[in-house]
Design a protein around this nucleic acid. Structure first.
Lengths: 180, 180
DNA sequence: AGTGGAAGGTTGAAGCTTCAAGTAACACCG
DNA sequence: CGGTGTTACTTGAAGCTTCAACCTTCCACT
């Protein structure tokens, strides 16, 4: 058993990282909740749909882009559907699958709430960092994500090096209101 | 209305950071849950108590060190008490306050589970990073935390520059099993 | 065709967090 | 000494996530 402890530099870093991971979701949620009646995760769902072709995505693809499990997404999409922000359509090509599509009301909701959310992200994250640190953070988070999701299943954050495969009947698109 | 969008560098960084913040808690929870029957937050509670003088901390101080709200902590400590890992004692000096104290069983639980947890943190985070990146990450997370918690209320991650005030009747101590 | 297994989702229950309210104790101030 | 406000928590309800089934449908083979 070659168990090691952490070095003091690692420990100091970990304490801060853990604190940030604990605090950041709350900061995102509370701004969006207050100003738009959305959780950050709901916002992500709307944003990812807005960037997709036809503003439509299969549940599995949407789950990957929002870093979520399928059950979680399923519940959330049902609630968003009840609120009229999203609709579900059975997928014609594959009868097992469900397509989630952003409604006009969902698009409007996103357009309304995006600026405030982006301001919030900038305030909490980017105003605190130098451009150099932003670049460092990109490569650090990239490295950690490779560990958390080695297979790149969560495609949102990976620029996948795989050749341009069919990519689940989706086409790259032009108009997204999202910004994360 | 001087609303700006994010630059493409910022956006790319944000997508990864958001993914990491979403995925890391699950990775921590599932290892601890599987191997020790604890959530990461429960582990943190035990760890912070283990480092405190008398293995005892007031609820407010413990909440600060675990980056949690008081209601959240209150529920969790009650459940830990039901499991015999922690006990609650009314504070003699201030009858409003409650002291949480790590029991012997709680200490044992922590000692058992710490090595596996530390391995997991090292695997997901530190093995992915160069020593230089670890230093960069410490300063980046420090900067972001200053934004998330400007008053330094969550003391865990801040080395507070304030003069040595009374510090809530706590004394710095020697023996902790925690490591975050 | 027919079968075994995998893929894609959904569902209900259990568990945890958040939120709003409520209680008790302390502290200050005239 | 009484009043006013603040601090320190606890509690119950509501909401969200997770977990473990479950049901279809698709796919690959024989």
């Amino acid at each position: 058993m070659s168990r090691q402890w952490l070095t003091s530099e690692q420990l100091a870093t970990w304490v801060r990282l853990a604190a940030m991971v604990e605090l950041l979701p709350g900061a995102l949620d509370s701004q969006l909740r207050r100003d738009a009646g959305l959780t950050h995760f709901e916002y992500m769902v709307l944003a990812m749909l807005s960037e997709a072709s036809e503003r439509t995505l299969r549940m599995t693809a949407l789950a990957a882009r929002t870093n979520a499990t399928l059950p979680r997404l399923s519940h959330v999409v049902r609630r968003l559907e009840d609120r009229g922000l999203v609709e579900r359509l059975p997928c014609p090509q594959d009868k097992r699958a469900t397509n989630a599509r952003l409604t006009e009301a969902g698009w409007q909701k996103l357009v309304e709430s995006a600026p405030g959310h982006v301001d919030n992200v900038r305030h909490h994250v980017f105003e605190a960092l130098t451009p150099e640190q932003v670049a460092q953070l990109a490569s650090i988070t990239g490295a950690i994500l490779d560990r958390l999701d080695p297979d790149g299943v969560m495609t949102a954050a990976h620029q996948r090096p795989t050749p341009p495969t069919d990519e689940e009947h989706q086409v790259r698109d032009k108009s997204g209101a999202g910004q994360g």
